[in-house]
Computed example of a mutant assay.
Amino acid sequence: MTSSEYDDEALWLKAKLFLNHAMDDEPRAFDERALWASLALELLAKAALSRVLPLLIASPTEDGGNLLVASGLVEGEGRFTSVKAHTLYSRCQKAFRPFSERDAQQITWARNPYLHGGCPTFTPIPPDAWWPRFWAQAAILVNAQDKSLDELVGSDRLSIVEKHLAQNKKNIEHRFEMLIERARQRLAQFRAGSLPARLAREWANPADLSLGWDYRTDQACPACGSVGVLEGADAESREVKYDELDEHYYDVLLELTISAEHFSCETCRLVLDTRELIEAAELPATFVTEGDFRDYEDDDYGND
């Protein structure tokens, strides 16, 4: 039996408690409510990962005692040590699409100056803009546990959460439209020779808009129709295929399915840097490419 510190149901219940504090309008100010919410988000991430495997949230110690406790192999009263928030969110991004490590980390980063420094507020972002961003990530972690938002916050508060989620979707749509129109506008000005001098100099000496990730594919730009680059860092799955050359020889191919996370176009300088924006653009959520077999040999043969 897994220790309660690593138990997904115990983590879920604690997240519910913290969110109950976070949703109390009175007597709590927004900064305190946002603090409770940020703590709840981290607990939801732990619960989602622990539900799959408690070891995913345990940080290794010298003697490995906490890993043994997390695995349920031994019972103990050892010190509870879990992985850091950025590790949790990185794993959640890979496991639970379209969870955003960056958006979740920005919520957590605000805690340090608020708790440990002289910063008088948790975040400069207005509450009406902050809560939709928070619930967009929290809802994904709830779904990853095969639970509902109703179970998390209760039916009397469900409408509040749904309103924030609807607002977040609208914000994403507005941002996408803004980026598309601005890219088209800049391209039209460039072609007409009417760009302001500073922008013209920047256009003449463009920075590389791509992230340089290992996995990429060409994709038509939703703003100008030119060929852009869709990139990803993580393989959702991989499949070995065999291409028979003749009866004695064959090639071994590794086919990777990559999660699309970044799009850029050198023609109109459009950049879509989140999965939500890529989805709004109706670009592919994944793409298939070939991988190097040698990169994955240790996965199968690293037992010596």
Rank of each mutant, 00 (worst) to 15 (best):
Y6R: 04
D8I: 01
L11P: 00
L19C: 08
A22H: 05
D25N: 09
D25G: 07
A29N: 09
A37M: 12
E42Q: 13
E42W: 03
L43V: 06
L49T: 00
P54C: 04
P60L: 05
T61W: 06
V69A: 08
L73P: 03
V74R: 13
E77R: 14
R79G: 14
T87L: 10
P98K: 07
F99T: 02
T108K: 07
P120T: 13
T123I: 02
P124W: 08
P126L: 12
W131F: 03
W131P: 08
W135M: 01
Q137H: 04
I140S: 01
V142L: 08
Q145K: 04
L152I: 07
L152R: 02
V153I: 08
S155T: 14
D156F: 07
L158D: 02
L158A: 06
L158V: 03
L158W: 04
I160D: 11
E162T: 14
K163M: 02
L165F: 04
L165R: 14
N171S: 11
F176V: 12
E177L: 12
M178E: 14
L179Q: 13
E181K: 12
Q185S: 11
L187T: 07
S194N: 13
E202K: 11
W203Q: 05
T217L: 01
S226N: 10
V229C: 06
L230W: 03
E236S: 11
E236L: 15
K241G: 05
Y242F: 14
L245C: 10
L245Y: 09
V252F: 00
V252H: 02
L256R: 10
E261T: 13
S264I: 03
S264H: 10
C265D: 00
C268Q: 01
R269L: 01
D273P: 05
D273I: 11
P284Y: 00
D292R: 08
R294M: 09
D295Y: 14
D299I: 15
G302L: 06
G302V: 05
D304P: 04
D304H: 12
